[in-house]
Structure formats: structure tokens, C-alpha cells
Design a protein around this nucleic acid. Structure first.
Lengths: 333, 333
DNA sequence: TTGTAAGCGTTATCAT
DNA sequence: ATGATAACGCTTACAA
């Protein structure tokens, strides 16, 4: 069942069939309808490979993420896939894990599949050592690369970011205004986004004339119990803090559990702010105040930008989106 | 940069190049090494389309799911993608939503992309009206279809399921043994899996000589607050229950919040059992006893079965995996 | 072991 | 508006 069968049955040439297939205006209505009817009768579907061979593209975007089971990334994948499909693009997904080697391998694989663009979802793709990102810059020579919540300078690379730094700056400011003086900061990763959040927190302290204390800043695995246990340990060691800010809701849930375990009352005795406004935020009692990084808007913007790139337009190499502070019950403001 | 360039530079025919590309044994080591070297020097990558045209396949599996942002499905996608890649297959992802029309459309799209098989992840794909599933049965005539946690009889269709019914049966049994007599059951969907869970609960009641009371069984959106509010409403209306079982951890978290709101103590006054043993299970205080549906094993088995199908082996049309009951602190046992 | 040549099913460039 | 025909880059008999 191919284009020849259709052309034969319709009594036209394959060129004509191809034309109606591709919506060419140079076909008479009569012929078009005839061909369409035959296609329908035969249940004809064009062969994507042959098509790809001729066109060099197949309307497919590669999406890379470190781990699709992470709630934040899972949402990103969802919005990206849906958005792309709205423009007629399929998505091929690669979960790379965190090793640089794998990331390189998968990016190469995606390129060899001739995808039309590659979206790097999540801030985990940009390595601290600039040279380690060369493989991305190089790939961008041949294919558009879009970063969701990551930043890398380069030709043919477009970044869409949440303004994490301002968000944590504002949130920490409100914490201070509500009376907190010893704000503990918990983060999971030193990624671009992770560092932005941390800096915002530090900005706020500085802006209010408070010292940035190293003994109030800790890295922690992205895990509820790990966060709880870390806080418990710090508590036991005698460290005092009257608020906890985290780079992820998961850690904030851990903070709530820490408070329960030590019978500290939230928010009177301890304020907590999470990040991502994920579904974890409403799991706890009291429910988490959290910063919404607006992943949906981030993904939508990424796709808009990509379409600009495809249309040869002048796409912004960097778009920033403001976060929302969602107030719930773990803060006094 | 194509096979001709390589053949020219290596001074061999394209057939020879193709042979080393495909690991044919009929190539002398000397020639093979030469060609390999040239490929490397030229940075040659075979064109997937041309290859697909010739072979009719491109080592790609279509994965359909209703919503990749659902934690359960997000994990499934992760394990499937990783597992398939281990066998050299790429994954193309389709999030279909719940409308039958979309499901049909995407399955058709995947077929037109000539994927080598289609995995339907999650129990949402099987419609109650048998006829509504005909499109799947038909597709299976031409391409292997694998169901993860869904069941449909049919040629070329393989199902891997968790034994939900036994799991809830056992869990409800333990609840009863620990003294509960009025076990409320909350479910989200009437899918195959959803009904299995419900039946297991009913089995347990029947087995212990307890009545199956309709006023203890409710459908509820998969949402923490919706579950909490529903229970609050039932509580206010005077309904008594001393345990809550749910078809998803999300609802169980809602039950914990309901207990907090009404100051009922867990598990003394109210026992709770969730389902999926997701990360939600450790978010609450006390932490949730939950049934682990072993999604990782489910996915691994699905892929194993698929490989059997690909190798022309006799693949089981139905494989069942036992669930695990993970005891935490919301039950007395 | 290697090469030649015929597909594979499209798209695109010519003519007409 | 339509038709022939040459790419596109690979796989795979069939020959040698």
C-alpha cells in the first residue's frame, strides 16, 4: 500500500498524489477529491521514512530530562509534549540520569535520529565547568537547542527561565519582615537554578543587613525523610533557626515533619517555605507556603520560542518568567 | 555525508560499508577496521530514514499514557524508557488524556510512525464497553500491543498486571483482624485496575462475614483536598467509619488530613491504607501504610515480554505480579 | 570477501 | 493542472 497504488487506482500520477498529500494548491478540486477518496478507500497512510528521506525532517522534537519520575520534570514533560503536539510535533523522550557521559550520548542519539530540535528540560543539564557544556554548544550549530530552566550562552540556543533569584529574594524578605532572623536554607543541587534560588535568599539577608551564615545553609538529598533527619540532627546539635526555606517542596515537607517530631509549632515557632508549589504542598498540616515556578508557562514559552526559531524569526536567546509566591499556612505573612 | 562518502574514502563499495554498519560477519577484519576508521574520521552517522525505508523499522516503541504528570505513570514512563533503551529501543511518548477519541487518534499516529510496538501504560486504556476497545484489538493485528496494568483479551496483545484484587483483599483482611468493622473505601476510577481493588476490598468483607455497605464506598477525584473534604462531609453527615482504604495514596493523604481536622487519632481511632506506595506515603504524620503495586517490576516484565514477542517466542498473554503491603504507621497491624 | 544494482516510498524539479 | 523522472541514503539479493 503505497503512493503508486493510490495513483494507479485514481488514474493519476504519483506526483499528483504527493501534491494532495502535501496540500499543494496546484491540484484541481476535482482531482483532489478523487485522490482523497481513493486514499480513504484504500486506507492509505504515507510512509514516514520515505517522507523523512525526502524532507530530512519528521516533525519530531527530542526531549531530554534527567529523570521523568521527578514531579517537576514529569509536569514539564507533560506540558511540553502536549504543547508540541498542538503544533503537530511528536516528542521522543530521553531520560539521561545525571552523568555527563549519558547526557552526551543521548544528545548524540537524538541528533542521529534527525529530530528537528532538542529540548533540555530542567536545570540539571548545564555543568558548572563551562567546557563540559561544549557538546551542547556544538550540537546547536546544527539543530536548535532549547533549555527549560537552564542557562547557556550560545548561538541557536534559547533559554526560558524562571526568575528563581527574585522569587527567593522576595520570599526570604517576607520571612524577615514577619520576624524571622535565623532562616535555614536547604538546597538539593548546585545547578543554575539551584544557585539562583540560594543567591536570592542571600540577597534578602544582605538587603536587610542580616549576616549570611554558613551554618544555616545545607545541601540535602531531594528526599522527605533525609530533610527531616538533617533538621533533627541540626536541632539536636543545638543550632537555632526560626524558619526554613527550601529549593524543593519535598524538603519543605521534611521540615514540617521535623517540626512535628520536635513539637515546634508552625508558623508561630517555625516558618517554612517550599519551592515548586507541587502537590506535596497540600499534603502536610499545615499546608506549605511555596514558590510556584510556573512550569506550565515556562514550557509554553519554550515552545513558542521554538516555533519562532522554526519560522526563521528572531527568537530571544533568553526569556525570564516571574515566579508566584503561594501563601498557605506555614508562614506568618 | 553519507555512505557513498565513506565508501569512496575507504576505497570499498557501499555494500561493504553497509555490512560493517550492520555487523555482518562477511567482512574481513582488515576491511572492517579500515571502514570503521574512515567512519570515525568523517564523523559519519547513518541516516535513520533511509535505514527505516529499507528495513521498515527504527527500533522505536510508542508509549501511550493518559497523563505523564501523574506520579504513578511518571514512574512507569521512566522505567519503560530506561528498560527499552537498555535493549536499544527509543521511546516516543504520547499523553492522550482520557477521551477515547484522542486515544484512538494517537494510537493511529503511532502506527503511522511505524513504531515497532505500542505500550499502553496505565489502566485507563481499557473502556468498560468492550466494543470501544476494538481499535486496540485491530491495531494488534499489525503491531504488538503491551498493556501495563490493564487487561484486554486479544491476539498479539500482552498484559502485565498487578494483582490488585488480592492486595486489597489481604489489606482489608488485616484491617478487619485489627478490629476495624466499618471500612470506608475511596476510589478514583472504575478502570480495570480500579475495579480490581474495589473487588478485593469487597472479597475481604464477604470473607469475614461483614456486609458490603454501599454507604461506605465512594468515588472521589484524585486529589488530596477533595478526599479530605469528602470525608469531612460524610463525617458531618453522621456516617461512622473506623478505617479508610483508598485506591491511591493521594486520597489516603486526604484521609490523614481529615483525621487531623477532626482530631481523630491515627491509627487508634482511624486506620488508613493507601495504594501505590508513592512518595506521598511518607509526607504525612503518621506515615501511610500503603500497597506497593510494584510498578518497576511491572514495567520490567512488560519489556521482557515484549522482547520475547520480538524474538518470535511464545509470550504469555497475561502476567500477574503480586503487590506488597508496606506497613507504616496508619494501621494497627 | 567484495561489488553491482535493484529496490524502499516519498519529494521535488522539470517539462508539458 | 498534471506527469516523468531524478534524487534521498540505505539494505539486500545476486554476481563475481
Amino acid at each position: 500500500m503505497n503512493i503508486y497504488d493510490v495513483s494507479k487506482k485514481a488514474g493519476v500520477s504519483i506526483a499528483t498524489v504527493s501534491r494532495v498529500l502535501n496540500g499543494s494548491p496546484n491540484v484541481s478540486d476535482r482531482t483532489r477529491n478523487l485522490v482523497l477518496k481513493v486514499m480513504d478507500e484504500l486506507g492509505y497512510t504515507p510512509n514516514v521514512f520515505a517522507r523523512g528521506l525526502g524532507l530530512g525532517t519528521i516533525q519530531t522534537i527530542g526531549i531530554m530530562c534527567s529523570d521523568s519520575s521527578d514531579p517537576y520534570l514529569a509536569h514539564a514533560i507533560y506540558y511540553l509534549e502536549q504543547g508540541l503536539r498542538g503544533y503537530g510535533y511528536d516528542s521522543i523522550l530521553c531520560c539521561t540520569g545525571n552523568s555527563l557521559e549519558n547526557k552526551q550520548k543521548y544528545l548524540e542519539l537524538l541528533r542521529s535520529k534527525k529530530v528537528d530540535a532538542i529540548i533540555l528540560a530542567g536545570s540539571k543539564f548545564i555543568e558548572p565547568k563551562l567546557r563540559d557544556n561544549d557538546y551542547i554548544t556544538e550540537a546547536a550549530q546544527e539543530i536548535p537547542i532549547m533549555l527549560v530552566n537552564g542557562f547557556l550562552e550560545g548561538n541557536n540556543i534559547c533559554c526560558t527561565l524562571c526568575d528563581d533569584r527574585s522569587a527567593t529574594h522576595e520570599a526570604a524578605g517576607k520571612l524577615i519582615a514577619s520576624g524571622c532572623r535565623s532562616i535555614l536554607y536547604l538546597y538539593t543541587s548546585r545547578s543554575y537554578s539551584g544557585m539562583g534560588k540560594l543567591h536570592g535568599y542571600q540577597d534578602a539577608l544582605g538587603g536587610c543587613g542580616l549576616p549570611v551564615r554558613k551554618d544555616l545553609i545545607y545541601q540535602c538529598p531531594k528526599d522527605v525523610l533525609a530533610a527531616r533527619d538533617l533538621l533533627l540532627k541540626l536541632h539536636t546539635s543545638g543550632l537555632f533557626f526560626d524558619a526554613v526555606m527550601t529549593s524543593d517542596d519535598t524538603l519543605a515537607v521534611g521540615a514540617v515533619k521535623y517540626a512535628h517530631a520536635t513539637r515546634r509549632s508552625i508558623p508561630d515557632d517555625l516558618s517554612i517555605i517550599g519551592y515548586n508549589n507541587s502537590s506535596y504542598a497540600v499534603c502536610t498540616d499545615p499546608e506549605l507556603t511555596s514558590i510556584d515556578s510556573r512550569i506550565e508557562a515556562l514550557c509554553a514559552t519554550t515552545i513558542n520560542t521554538l516555533m519562532i526559531v522554526f519560522n526563521g524569526g528572531n527568537a530571544p536567546s533568553r526569556t525570564t518568567i516571574a515566579a508566584d509566591l503561594i501563601k498557605r499556612a506555614t508562614t506568618k505573612f
